[in-house]
Amino acid sequence: MAQPKIRVLIAKPGLDGHDRGAKVIARALRDAGMEVIYTGLRQTPEMIAEAALQEDVHIVGLSILSGAHLTLVPRILRLLKQQGQERVRVMLGGIIPDEDRPKLEAMGVAGVFGPGTSTTAIVEAFSRAVEPQELKAAEG
């Protein structure tokens, strides 16, 4: 039996064209031994939910710099739920005002990471989000 891996989808929903942050995070997660599916810029919520389903990921990491997080995130969460992907955890990074954090967390976002968060902290949060049991059972 092979060692199961944490699988992560890193996606940039919306229209902002800066993916340097997303790439840095993808690289850090890879270096922590995770398999990171990187989908590129300007993904719609539908594209993100579909990719998460086909790739059977544990975590979806969203990078949003445009300020549209309160519109995009609920749509993505709703789609994931509709498709039976409740177990997928959603993490959010980018420029997120502090006052929006409680709202996002209430919606079900598992972690919000603003500018200046260290990659180490992000990697730790991603690692902790997936129970060893869940990996061991390999989603069976």
Partner: peptide, 14 residues
Amino acid sequence: FSGGAILGDRIRMR
């Protein structure tokens, strides 16, 4: 080294 991977083929298949 880490056993991790960045899988980027979907970028071109949007």
